[in-house]
Computed example of a mutant assay.
Amino acid sequence: MSSEIFLKAIDQEIVRTQYGDNPVELYEPIEYLMSLGGKRMRPLLTVIATNIFSDDWEHAIKPAIGVEVFHNFTLMHDDIMDAAPLRRGKPTVHEKWDKNVAILSGDVMLVCAYELMTAVEDGIFKQVIRRFNRTAAEVCEGQQLDMNFASRNDVTEEEYIDMIRLKTSVLLGFALELGGMIANAGETNIKLLYEIGTNVGIGFQLKDDILDVYGDPEKFGKQVGGDIIENKKTFLLIEALAQAKGKPEEKELAHWLSVQEFDKNEKVKAVTAIYDSLGIKQLAENKMNEFFSKGLSDLEKLAATAERKKPLLDLIEMLIEREN
Rank of each mutant, 00 (worst) to 15 (best):
L171Y: 13
S151R: 14
I103V: 14
Q127H: 12
I129N: 06
H59G: 12
T74E: 05
I129E: 08
S169C: 12
E121C: 01
N153R: 10
M163G: 00
N133Y: 03
G180K: 06
I182C: 02
L171A: 07
F174N: 00
M147F: 04
R152S: 00
G179R: 02
L178K: 07
V155Q: 02
L166E: 14
R88I: 05
W97G: 04
E115A: 13
T92N: 10
E121I: 02
E95D: 07
F70D: 05
I129M: 09
V139D: 02
G142M: 09
D162I: 01
F149Y: 13
D79M: 09
E177T: 10
I164T: 05
F53D: 00
H59R: 15
T156A: 04
T118R: 09
A102S: 06
I103W: 08
L86V: 01
L116P: 08
E121M: 10
P63D: 03
R88A: 03
A136S: 13
I103S: 10
A84H: 04
D98R: 04
V67H: 01
I164L: 12
G173L: 09
I61M: 09
E121T: 14
E121G: 14
L145K: 10
A137T: 06
R87H: 06
T135Q: 01
M76Q: 06
E157S: 01
Y114Q: 00
F125E: 01
I129L: 11
F149E: 10
P63N: 11
T188M: 15
Y114S: 11
L176R: 00
N72M: 07
R152L: 11
M109N: 05
L86T: 15
N184H: 15
K96C: 08
H94A: 01
P63I: 09
E187D: 15
D78V: 07
L178Q: 02
L166P: 11
V170Y: 07
E138S: 09
L192P: 06
I124V: 11
H77W: 07
T188A: 14
A102D: 02
M117I: 04
G179D: 00
N51S: 15
M163V: 04
T135G: 00
G186S: 09
F73N: 00
A137F: 02
V93G: 04
D98N: 14
A183I: 06
A102L: 03
N51G: 10
L75Q: 12
A113M: 06
F70W: 05
Y160K: 13
R87T: 12
F53I: 10
V93H: 06
T188Y: 11
A150F: 10
V111H: 01
D98G: 02
R87Q: 11
A175P: 04
I80T: 09
I161Q: 05
Y160C: 13
A175S: 13
E157F: 11
E158P: 04
V111M: 12
R131I: 01
P63V: 05
L176E: 04
T156C: 03
H77D: 08
R134I: 05
V155C: 06
L166R: 15
F174V: 04
L171I: 03
D98P: 00
D55H: 11
I164S: 05
W57Q: 02
N51L: 04
R165P: 01
S54D: 15
M117R: 01
D162R: 15
D56V: 11
V111F: 12
I129C: 07
I103Y: 06
N153I: 04
E58N: 02
L178P: 05
A175N: 03
Y160L: 14
L145A: 15
Y160D: 05
R152F: 07
V170F: 07
K96R: 15
